[in-house]
C-alpha cells in the first residue's frame, strides 16, 4: 500500500512542482507583491487565452502551416544530406564542417536578412525553419549510419548484398532511433523558428500576434501566447514519440518487456 502510494507520488511529482509554482505565482500576483501590470496572475493569463481563443487559433494555423512545411522540407533535406555524406566520404569531409558552421549563426541574426531578400510572405519563414531543422536530422542520421556494427555489414556483404541492400536492411533501420531523436529536436525548433521569423514581418502568425500584444503592453495576452506556443511544441514532440512507437514496434516492446521484468 505504502509502496503503491510512493510510486504514484513518484509519477506525479513533476506536476506537483508545477502546480506549487502556479499557486505561489497566483498569491504573489493577487496580494500585489508583484504589480499586476508587470506580471499578470495565472488566472489572468487563462482568461486572456479564453478571450482571444478564436484569434489565437487563426494565427496558430498560419504558424503551424509554416512550421509543417519547413519541417517537411528540412527533414527531407537533412535525410538527403546524411545519405549523400554517407555514400560519398568526400562529401562528408568537405561539407560537414560547413554544415556545422551554418549552425553557429544565430537564427535571429539571419532572419532579417531573409526578410530583406524574400519579402514578407511565406518563403523567408519556411527557409528559416528549413535551415534550423535539417541539422538535427542530418547529424542524427549520420551518427546512426556510423555506429552500425561492421560485422553485420560484413555478413550482408558475404550474402552478396549490394550497397543499396546494406542501406535498406541495416543502415537505415538501425539509425531510426537516432533519426527520431533528431526529429524531436527539429519539431520544437520548427515552431520556435516560425515564431521568430514572424516577429520580423508578416500579417498572420503567433509571432505577429506576439509583436502586437507586446506593443500594446497586454502582458496577460503575452503570457497566454507564450504558454500556447510551448503547449504546441509539447504536443508535437508527443506526436513524434507516438510516431516512433508506431514505426519501431521492436523498441516499444523492448521497453514493456523491461518494465515487466522490474
Amino acid at each position: 500500500m505504502k509502496k503503491k502510494f510512493l510510486s504514484i507520488i513518484n509519477k506525479i511529482s513533476s506536476f506537483i512542482v508545477i502546480f506549487a509554482i502556479l499557486i505561489l505565482w497566483q498569491i504573489l500576483s493577487a496580494t500585489g507583491i508583484v504589480p499586476k501590470f508587470m506580471l499578470p496572475s495565472p488566472v489572468d493569463v487563462v482568461m486572456a487565452f479564453i478571450g482571444d481563443f478564436p484569434l489565437l487559433m487563426q494565427h496558430a494555423a498560419t504558424t503551424l502551416t509554416e512550421a509543417f512545411l519547413g519541417l517537411m522540407i528540412g527533414t527531407l533535406l537533412g535525410f538527403a544530406i546524411a545519405v549523400i555524406m554517407d555514400y560519398y566520404p568526400i562529401a562528408y569531409k568537405s561539407v560537414y564542417p560547413l554544415m556545422v558552421l551554418t549552425q553557429t549563426v544565430p537564427t535571429v541574426a539571419i532572419a532579417p536578412l531573409l526578410v530583406l531578400w524574400m519579402g514578407y510572405g511565406l518563403l523567408p519563414k519556411v527557409t528559416l525553419i528549413v535551415l534550423t531543422t535539417f541539422f538535427p536530422i542530418a547529424i542524427g542520421l549520420l551518427d546512426g549510419f556510423h555506429t552500425v556494427d561492421p560485422d553485420s555489414i560484413n555478413l550482408l556483404k558475404a550474402m552478396g548484398a549490394n550497397r543499396l541492400q546494406v542501406f535498406t536492411h541495416i543502415k537505415l533501420p538501425s539509425s531510426l532511433s537516432h533519426f527520431f531523436a533528431g526529429l524531436k529536436i527539429s519539431v520544437s525548433y520548427s515552431v520556435v523558428a516560425a515564431v521568430i521569423s514572424e516577429w520580423l514581418g508578416g500579417f498572420y502568425g503567433l509571432g505577429v500576434y506576439m509583436t502586437r500584444v507586446r506593443k500594446s503592453y497586454s502582458f496577460d495576452k503575452m503570457f497566454a501566447v507564450i504558454f500556447f506556443i510551448s503547449l504546441i511544441s509539447l504536443l508535437l514532440m508527443l506526436g513524434v514519440t507516438l510516431l516512433k512507437d508506431a514505426v519501431m514496434p521492436w523498441d516499444r516492446s523492448k521497453k514493456t518487456e523491461r518494465k515487466n521484468q522490474i
Binding site: 560485422d151 553485420s152 555478413l155 556483404k157 558475404a158 552478396g160 541495416i170 519501431m248 521492436w250
Partner: peptide, 16 residues
C-alpha cells in the same frame, strides 16, 4: 564473398 555462409559468436540478428 557469397559462396560460403558463416555464423559468428554473436548472433547478429537484426533487432528490428
Amino acid at each position: 564473398a557469397g559462396n560460403v555462409s558463416y555464423m559468428l559468436q554473436k548472433d547478429m540478428l537484426m533487432p528490428y
